[in-house]
């Protein structure tokens, strides 16, 4: 028992508390062969030294886990900050979406689009903040990606819809980055997010077509159909995995079909030719 006591003098009280008394006594009884350390021949002197080793290991563990705790707390902090920004993005999106919803109420008017566009600068600022946070932890973009992912997809869908309303063209990936002030080398827009956003936009188009026809724009189905056909054809070039994007893409054909139906209804009644004929409603099939 004596050497053991001497040992405990040399170790800190702290680590001594970690050792159950019961086991200390049984270790001193164990034979040298009970716990062998191949490749460490110098540690042949049995129980005492292996005890010391054991105490060391405890301190080592303590140190490592303490640093893990710190690192995890830090990343938890980063995540909280990201979530805070993501929530602001979300509320910004809500404003933008609700003002953009007015396009369903009447023929397109520039004020509606202007109002929605006003939110873009706010979004820019928010993405700027996001990229500043991410700059603190380089290489970990995808660690936190999930926290702003769905918001970003919605942002893409709104921007692309807005852009299409204005120009009739598809908003390209790089154009979204430009609009949001993102830099691909630093904090870019994930291409899958962009593509999913486009699918969301496609979901919006059937409703838009129906309402535009009701409002008297009989040429709209043709334009939308052309655009959506092209978009669908472009998407078919992608080799998709069995994931969310694939699911959204599979849904796009229903949007396409709905627009085709509206186009057909309008066409077959000869409404497209003389645009503002009378208030003939396209039949809902």
């Amino acid at each position: 028992m004596k050497p053991l006591l001497r040992l405990s003098d040399t170790i800190s009280l702290h680590s001594r508390l970690l050792i159950p008394r019961l086991f200390l006594s049984s270790f001193s009884l164990s034979s040298p062969t009970a716990f062998q350390i191949p490749g460490h021949k110098e540690v042949r002197a049995p129980s005492l030294l292996s005890n010391q080793r054991f105490l060391c290991s405890c301190a080592r563990m303590e140190e490592q886990f303490e640093s893990f705790r710190q690192q995890l707390e830090e990343s938890g902090g980063v995540r909280e900050r990201i979530r805070a920004v993501a929530m602001e993005i979300e509320s910004c999106i809500r404003f933008m979406h609700s003002s953009l919803l007015l396009v369903h109420h009447s023929l397109p008017s520039p004020e509606v689009l202007e109002k929605a566009k006003a939110q873009i600068s706010t979004l820019r600022d928010l993405y700027q903040r996001l990229s500043e946070i991410l700059r603190e932890c380089p290489g970990q973009y995808y660690r936190y990606h999930g926290d702003w992912r769905s918001e970003t997809q919605t942002v893409v869908s709104l921007l692309a819809f807005l852009h299409w309303l204005e120009t009739g063209n598809l908003l390209m990936h790089t154009e979204v980055e430009d609009k949001l002030g993102l830099d691909a080398s630093d904090f870019g827009l994930d291409i899958e997010d962009y593509l999913i956003g486009l699918c969301f936009m496609a979901n919006e188009l059937p409703r838009y077509v129906v309402n535009q026809v009701t409002a008297g724009d009989y040429d709209c189905p043709r334009r939308v159909l052309k655009f959506l056909t092209e978009l669908h054809a472009a998407f078919r070039m992608l080799n998709l995995r069995n994931d969310f994007l694939r699911k959204k893409f599979d849904g796009m054909k229903y949007d396409l079909r709905r627009v085709e139906e509206v186009f057909y209804d309008v066409k077959i009644r000869g409404l497209a030719k003389d645009a503002k004929l009378e208030g003939t409603q396209p039949s809902d099939s």
């Binding site: 063209n169 472009a234 070039m237 998709l240």
Partner: peptide, 15 residues
């Protein structure tokens, strides 16, 4: 509108 297929070619490569 030939920009669309071209851009999608890039996305295809990426994916």
């Amino acid at each position: 509108v030939s920009a669309m297929p071209e851009a999608f070619e890039k996305y295809t490569d990426y994916l």
